[in-house]
């Protein structure tokens, strides 16, 4: 696999656009061919990945996972257990790599940081009024600054869909830019919540807006809606990221999240990624899968590929 330069938080090109460009950027976004997009996503999703390639893809899927818990009922104990799983997904099999990061609420960031010190697993926190992003702006920005001060390596914020869908692009852009500044030095992921955007045109426009505002990653969903990531919406975002990177020279990562529970889905997203953004994106630096129950399914699939026997959840840790 080729070496990929790490995305520098808020790197080259982020200052190239100002709020006054926002409306222009959105307006000049080309319309998305919905039928073609869905057909391409469906055909790539059918690609058969077998044996060594499948094992490689499953290994990569684990390395790209943001192991997530975003429940009101999260406790320090649950986070400790999840961190252990993040470092050694299968305690009896050291050949299984660690996940990329854990993703949780700000309150639990110190717990995760303590557990993951020295392991290489990063800590991502949602912030900025997750999941709606409709709290007072100063409170949202303060939340971002606080998680950065706590030491989180990555921050997942949400696009203000209310502003975006009302056509107030400049204001939505400014909010994202303010969050970008608040999240200085850390990876900023911007959640578009594609399930609320209504059309692929909107998905593409929101992607462009977020990337221009300085997002290091654009992320499909919060995981709080019944519609999470879908193959066509992820493809739409990948195409936007590809074009943005060609235009500005700045690579932007993709994070898919919401409803990804099976290995097969993870592999499908990897196929889309490979075919759209190429091998340089096949790394946790530039691609993430936000998931919780996916990890066990991947572990079961790996065991199935190795032993030839279908596995059952009784033999894997409950998370």
């Amino acid at each position: 696999m080729s070496q990929t330069a790490e995305i520098q938080p808020g790197g080259v090109g982020t200052q190239a656009f100002g709020p006054r460009d926002a409306a222009r950027l959105v307006a000049r976004t080309t319309a998305v061919d919905a039928v073609g997009l869905e057909e391409r996503a469906a055909s790539l999703g059918k690609r058969s990945i077998k044996r060594e390639s499948k094992l490689w893809a499953l290994d990569l899927a684990i390395r790209c996972t943001d192991l997530t818990t975003l429940e009101g009922a999260d406790t320090a104990g649950k986070v400790v257990a999840m961190c252990a799983k993040a470092v050694r997904p299968n305690p009896i099999d050291p050949s299984i790599p660690s996940v990329a990061a854990v993703c949780l609420y700000p309150e639990l960031v110190p717990v995760a940081l303590g557990q993951l010190k020295g392991t290489g697993v990063r800590v991502a926190s949602v912030a900025g009024g997750f999941p709606s992003g409709l709290g007072p702006l100063d409170a949202r920005l303060r939340e971002v600054r606080e998680v950065v001060e706590m030491g989180a390596h990555e921050v997942d914020i949400v696009l203000n869909r209310s502003l975006f869908l009302a056509g107030r692009y400049a204001q939505a852009f400014e909010e994202l830019r303010a969050a970008r500044e608040a999240a200085e030095g850390v990876h900023l992921k911007v959640i578009l919540e594609v399930g609320e955007l209504g059309s692929y045109d909107r998905v593409r426009q929101a992607s462009v807006l977020a990337m221009a505002a300085g997002a290091d990653f654009i992320k499909t969903s919060t995981g709080k809606l019944s519609t999470g990531a879908t193959l066509p919406s992820a493809l739409c975002m990948m195409e936007a990221a590809r074009d943005f990177s060609r235009e500005t020279g700045r690579p932007v990562g993709i994070k898919v999240a919401g409803g990804i529970r099976r290995s097969k889905q993870a592999v499908q997203y990897l196929v889309l990624l490979y075919e759209t953004l190429g091998p340089e994106w096949m790394t946790p630096e530039r691609f993430r899968i936000g998931a919780s129950s996916l990890l066990n399914d991947v572990l079961m699939q790996i065991d199935k590929e190795r032993t030839g026997r279908y596995q059952g959840p009784d033999y894997f840790t409950i998370d």
């Binding site: 030839g308 026997r309 279908y310 596995q311 059952g312 959840p313 009784d314 033999y315």
Partner: peptide
């Protein structure tokens, strides 16, 4: 054999 080997049966 696939049935007998399935760990979730």
């Amino acid at each position: 054999p696939w049935l007998a080997g399935h760990m979730d049966v």
